[in-house]
């Protein structure tokens, strides 16, 4: 093992530098659809984490036996199996959450973040790094969903994780928990992330005159 663990690097990059939602703009459909409350964002993040880490683990372990021509089909079979397992398990153990997320659990199959990680990373890297990469991406995705959900829930209902925080004097901005509120919040967060990144780059150029810092976090 090297002095700087590459697996650790794979894990942290997903949080910020390559955050799937805010930087790669992947998986926006669930990010907009289910984030009308922080708890829904968290549940969706957890479900996606399970599917992504499980699929990456399996795809990476089997990467030497899957023929190139049928790799995408094989990835989809693996992903769809994990999604159905998640779907049924949630239905059995957490029916209220399953009711809230509805069809979006089944739609994790078509989340391009997951297929993207299999094709771009898990199928070309050893298991340890693939799992670290998947874990990092999934946690970054969950973080983004919880952020979106928390902002929308706070402004749209005055509560956070179901707990009333803004009191009865607050008039909820109903639009925030409707679809337009999702687009507005996501747009503002993307602008914020882009602004911070640009500031970092120009600051590092002014100081060192060299290449931008690799790890923004």
């Amino acid at each position: 093992m090297q002095t700087s663990d590459p697996a650790y690097d794979e894990l942290v990059k997903g949080f910020w530098r390559e955050n799937p939602v805010f930087v790669q703009l992947l998986g926006l459909c669930p990010a907009l659809a289910v984030t009308n409350s922080a708890i829904n964002g968290l549940a969706m993040g957890a479900a996606t984490t399970f599917v992504l880490v499980g699929s990456s683990l399996l795809v990476s372990s089997l990467r030497s036996v899957i023929p190139k021509q049928v790799r995408i089909t094989s990835f989809i079979i693996v992903i769809a199996t994990f999604v159905t397992v998640t779907d049924l398990t949630l239905q059995a153990l957490a029916p209220t959450i399953h009711k809230e997320l509805g069809a979006f659990i089944a739609l994790i199959v078509v989340n391009c973040l997951i297929l993207g990680r299999q094709e771009a990373f898990a199928s070309r890297n050893p298991v340890r790094r693939a799992v670290a990469d998947a874990g990092g991406m999934a946690l970054g995705f969950s973080l983004a969903l919880v952020m979106l959900g928390a902002i929308r829930e706070l402004l749209g209902t005055g509560s956070l994780f179901g707990v009333d925080v803004l009191g009865p004097g607050f008039e909820p901005w109903v639009i925030m928990i409707l679809p337009p509120g999702g687009f507005i919040t996501l747009g503002l967060l993307l602008a914020l992330f882009a602004y911070v990144r640009e500031r970092r780059i120009s600051a590092s150029q002014a100081v060192g005159g060299g290449t931008p810092v690799r790890r923004a976090a």
């Binding site: 990467r63 030497s64 036996v65 899957i66 023929p67 190139k68 021509q69 790799r71 199928s123 070309r124």
Partner: peptide
């Protein structure tokens, strides 16, 4: 992932 496989191998997989 670099395996170039024939139809039998693909079907089996």
């Amino acid at each position: 992932m670099a395996i170039e496989a024939g139809p039998a191998r693909m079907m089996a997989t």
